[in-house]
Design a binder for these strands. Structure first.
Lengths: 204, 204
DNA sequence: GGTCACCCGTGACATCTGTCAGGTCCGGCC
DNA sequence: GGCCGGACCTGACAGATGTCACGGGTGACC
C-alpha cells in the first residue's frame, strides 16, 4: 500500500472540524496531518505540515477559503484545495475556480463524497458539485461593473449615501448613480433588494 | 454496562450530520438511532425511534430546532433536546430555553463537549455554552413590542413601507411609526440598521 | 482617429423615509 | 374609577433616496 494522502482541515467551527477530521481519518488512505480554525492559521499550518490536499471552509475569520487557496498556491504549489461551504452561491464557485480551487462542495453533500473528492483532487482531478455548477451556469456572470459592486457592497449594511460616498471617496451623486444602475441591472425594487440579490448570487 | 443512550441527530447538512453521527457512535455509551435532514423528518423519525436525546441543528428547513423541540415535548415527553447552532444569537437561546431545550451549544465548541452534553441532558441536567449565556444576559430582553417586532421583520428584506403595510394589514403611517420607534429603541441609524441589530440579537 | 465601455461628476425632480405632534380605542392594574 | 401602556390611526414636514438628463475623462479596440 502507498503512503496515505496528507490532508489539512480548516474550519472555524471546532465541532464540525473535529468530526470531519475523525471521519476522514477513518479512511485507510487518508490522514489528517493538521487542523486550523482560521485562514491565517491554515496557511501557517500548511507551511510545515505540507499536506497533499487542503480542505477549507469557505467562510472563516481572517482569510476565507478562497484567499487561503491563493496563499497556498504560492507557498505550496503542489497542494490541491477543496472548498466546502454552507451557502453555495454561484459567484463563490466562480471566484473559487479562478483562484485555483479544484474541489467545491456544499455541506449538504453526503459524507462519502468528501473523501472521494479529496482522492480525486490528490490525483490531479477536479470536482464541482453538479447542482452548484448548474446554478452557476444559470446565474451567469455578474452584470455589475467593479465600481457598482464596490458601492453596492458598502450599501449592504444599510449605510446612508453620504457615508458610502465618504468611504468610497466618491461624490454622493455618483454613489446614487451607481446604486441606481445596480438596482436596474439586478431588476431589484430598491438598493436593499439589490444587495439581497447580489448576495444571493455571490456577486458581492 | 447499562444500555447506551439513544440519540437522534437532525441537521440539514448531510456532510456535517454524518460526520457527527460517526463521532457520537464512536462513544461507547452513545448510539445514534435515527438521523433527519429537516424538522418534520426529525419529528417523524423520533416518533418511532424513541431516542433519549435529540441533537438538533437550530436552522433547518420546515421546522427549526426550537419548533421541533416543542413538537417532541408533546410527542415524546421523556426525550431531552440539545440544540446546536452556527450563529449563536442571544434571543435564540432565550426562545430555546423557553421551549424546553436543555442543551444549547454553538458549533464552535469542541467535539468532546457535545458528547458530554448529551450525557448531561440524558441524566436530566442542562448545559448552556457559557459565552452564549453571558451574551444573552448582557443583551437583555427585547425592548420591542410584539407589533414592532412584526413590522421590523417584514421590513427586514428591504420592502418599502407600502408593502409592509399591506402585508401587516396596517396603514403606512402606523408602519412608519413602528419602524421609527424600533429604530429609536435599538439605537440604530435607520430601519435597515435596526433590522441588523435585531437580527444579531435574535429578536426577530 | 473613431467608437465604446467604464469611471466620475453635476443638477433637478418626484417619491420615499424618518420624525414629530397629535388623536382614539382597549385591557390590565392599583 | 383613574392611570398607563400598547395597538392603531392621521397629518405634516425635512431630509434622504431613486431616477433622469447631461456633462467630461480615460483606456481598450478596431
Amino acid at each position: 500500500m502507498t503512503a496515505p494522502i496528507r490532508v489539512l482541515l480548516a474550519d472555524d467551527e471546532n465541532l464540525i472540524r473535529e468530526a470531519l477530521a475523525q471521519m476522514l481519518d477513518l479512511e485507510d488512505d487518508l490522514t489528517v496531518v493538521a487542523q486550523a480554525a482560521s485562514g491565517p492559521e491554515a496557511v501557517a499550518a500548511a507551511r510545515h505540515a505540507e499536506p497533499h490536499v487542503a480542505v477549507l471552509d469557505l467562510q472563516m475569520p481572517g482569510l476565507d477559503g478562497i484567499a487561503v487557496t491563493e496563499e497556498l498556491a504560492r507557498a505550496l504549489p503542489g497542494c490541491g484545495t477543496v472548498v466546502v461551504t454552507s451557502h453555495g452561491r454561484p459567484g463563490h464557485l466562480k471566484r473559487a475556480l479562478a483562484a485555483g480551487v479544484r474541489g467545491f462542495l456544499p455541506k449538504t453533500t453526503s459524507a462519502a463524497t468528501l473523501a472521494q473528492v479529496v482522492r480525486t483532487v490528490h490525483a490531479g482531478g477536479r470536482y464541482v458539485d453538479p447542482d452548484l455548477a448548474t446554478e452557476a451556469i444559470a446565474a451567469g456572470d455578474s452584470p455589475l461593473t467593479p465600481r457598482e459592486a464596490d458601492v453596492l457592497e458598502l450599501a449592504a449594511d444599510g449605510a446612508p449615501v453620504d457615508e458610502i460616498a465618504a468611504r468610497a471617496s466618491l461624490s454622493p451623486g455618483t454613489v446614487r448613480n451607481y446604486l441606481s444602475s445596480a438596482v436596474t441591472k439586478l431588476g431589484a425594487a430598491n438598493r436593499h433588494d439589490a444587495c439581497a440579490v447580489a448576495r444571493r448570487m455571490g456577486w458581492i
